[in-house]
């Protein structure tokens, strides 16, 4: 293989890390024309709710109505509330496991279906379907899929000689069941975006590599992977953000149980807001999550940018 593969700019990742490899961007004021519609739209519809949430976070609530200005009390509670910490732990485990599995399987599947395989168009369409299977519905179905006495999964496992797994009734397995449904649902997201990016890769690089006698593995390692890296980080970023907010599946399948074994952060916040009507504390929780996720995003992607700069 003759030429070094071009290392892409790093794109959004640089942006997120507040960096600035923007040498090729012009300062043409027409840029505003492209940017403004979206910016105004988002600002218009989110500024009031956001300020409202921020405002309520300084209040205590009784009967779902503002009761007393309590300053930073709601934020102080964030640090002493063991239940919140448990929810955070559950969520972190959930995020790490599901996002890693989804990334690996989704990208692998995209590579697989990027090959010349008969019927690939139909296969691609099928692989995307779980994206549309409403999570609430999947949560309900999960109750029957993972049904312990005679559910299809346990019956299948028994034919393999594995004793039935107490999927939903034990704190050890219930999170696994929730994660499996989530992985089923969101792997196609990774698949879809990486497939779209794979198809944008320049074919001539591969042809040149082939002429040079590079094996498939060489091409993958030297061309596909480096070219795909920015997109993969991007997908990781988007999946991370979504996974931190997971709600529908545990809310319809396990309701957080047994005990608090599957009580994820959003479910906890949901209960605080719409079960206990403690809107102020719920707002504080939301702000904390915003802070945590943005911190992770910035730290993680700041590091990546450094890697790029050293490597490039």
């Amino acid at each position: 293989m003759a030429q070094e593969p071009v290392i892409p700019s790093g794109g959004v990742l640089n942006d997120v890390a507040q960096g600035g490899n923007v040498a090729r961007r012009t300062k043409d004021p027409t840029g505003m024309f492209f940017l403004l519609p979206a910016a105004v739209w988002v600002l218009l519809f989110t500024i009031f709710p956001l300020l409202y949430a921020l405002y309520t976070s300084f209040w205590s609530f009784r009967f779902g109505q503002r009761n007393q200005f309590v300053g930073l009390d709601n934020f102080v509670r964030l640090f002493t509330d063991a239940n919140l910490h448990s929810a955070l732990r559950v969520t972190l485990t959930f995020v790490i496991v599901t996002v890693v599995v989804e990334m690996l399987v989704g990208f692998g599947l995209a590579l697989l279906l990027n090959q010349e395989i008969r019927g690939k168009s139909v296969l691609r369409a099928i692989m995307v379907l779980p994206l549309f299977a409403t999570p609430v519905g999947m949560g309900f179905l999960g109750i029957t899929l993972f049904y312990e006495i005679n559910g299809p999964i346990n019956v299948f496992l028994r034919t393999l000689g594995i004793e039935g797994i107490p999927w939903l009734s034990t704190p050890q397995w219930a999170p696994v069941a929730v994660m499996l449904i989530d992985i089923w649902q969101w792997t196609p997201f990774v698949f879809l975006v990486s497939l779209a990016a794979l198809q944008g890769l320049p074919v001539d690089l591969y042809e040149a590599a082939e002429v040079d006698g590079a094996s498939g593995w060489d091409s993958f390692r030297n061309i596909t992977l480096p070219l795909m890296t920015p997109t993969l980080w991007l997908i990781l970023l988007l999946r991370l953000v979504e996974a931190f907010k997971v709600f529908d599946i545990p809310a319809s399948m396990t309701l957080g149980g047994p005990g608090r074994a599957t009580e994820v952060y959003s479910l906890f916040t949901y209960r605080t807001a719409l079960r206990f009507f403690d809107h102020g504390y719920a707002a504080a929780q939301g702000i904390l999550l915003l802070f945590i996720v943005m911190l992770i995003v910035t730290l993680l992607f700041g590091r990546i940018r450094e890697l790029y700069e050293v490597g490039g």
Partner: peptide, 26 residues
């Protein structure tokens, strides 16, 4: 394009942050 007042990075982060807040809060 490169934006002057607010950096492209901040703008991107701002767009992304719209997805971070749990909906129940708003």
């Amino acid at each position: 394009f490169r934006f002057q007042r607010i950096s492209n990075g901040s703008l991107t982060t701002w767009f992304l942050s719209q997805r971070v807040l749990p909906p129940v809060v708003v």
